[in-house]
């Protein structure tokens, strides 16, 4: 795994003059919920969260801690659950970003949202978009997850209102409604993870 000393030096272009402010706006594209979006005027160091909310107006992705600690900004990045505030937006140009809005008006995410409402798992609602994305990710990977596994999988999503009991009940409800015969045997390691968790 050694590195050759040679190789093209990419990106050493441009003259070396730096403006007073020291930065030039970037322009790039992001694939958000299946749509190619143009980002302009961005700074290199901006997180995906900042770009989604402030440059693209995707405000369902919530901004609370900006430290990766609360999960309010959870999205899927190439089908992996991530906190948007810890992802560099300019490095996500070739990735697929899915927010709660892109998870679909039918299918598992819709059932999860309905169950959240039915169980009173939405109170102030601030944590809900991130939690719906996290639950969709979990049930896509591990449809038959038990209570401990559910709690552990959602540990990165903080809810200040519900005390989690109602959220857990909502997840259990979705599981029961979807897999009455226990079709989702445990043991997957991500093989069947997609945003569309085959309908039933």
């Amino acid at each position: 795994m050694s590195a050759g000393p040679a190789g093209p030096v990419d990106g050493a272009e441009g003259d070396d003059t730096e403006g007073d402010d020291g930065w030039e706006p970037l322009q790039y594209h992001l694939n958000v919920d299946g749509t190619r979006r143009v980002v302009s005027g961005a700074r290199l160091e901006e997180s995906l969260l900042t770009v989604l909310r402030e440059r693209l107006g995707v405000t369902s992705v919530k901004d609370a801690c900006e430290q990766g600690r609360c999960g309010a900004c959870s999205v899927l990045l190439d089908d992996r659950l991530v906190t948007a505030c810890t992802v560099l937006a300019a490095d996500a140009v070739d990735a697929r970003v899915l927010t709660v809005a892109g998870l679909g008006a039918s299918g598992p995410a819709a059932r999860i949202q309905a169950a959240f409402l039915a169980h009173g798992a939405v109170q102030c609602g601030f944590c809900t978009p991130g939690l719906v994305v996290a639950v969709t990710d979990l049930l896509g990977r591990r449809p038959a997850a038990g209570e401990q596994e559910i709690r552990e999988a959602l540990a990165g999503n903080i809810c200040r209102c519900t005390g989690y009991g109602r959220i857990l009940a909502a997840v259990r409800d979705v599981q029961a409604g979807r897999a009455p015969g226990g079709s989702g045997a445990p043991g997957g390691s991500g093989a069947n993870r997609t945003n569309g968790v085959g309908g039933a």
């Binding site: 003259d15 030039e24 970037l26």
Partner: peptide, 11 residues
């Protein structure tokens, strides 16, 4: 590379 002008470069 996504060039960001002289002062910000992403390799």
């Amino acid at each position: 590379t996504t060039p960001g002008g002289p002062s910000t470069v992403l390799h």
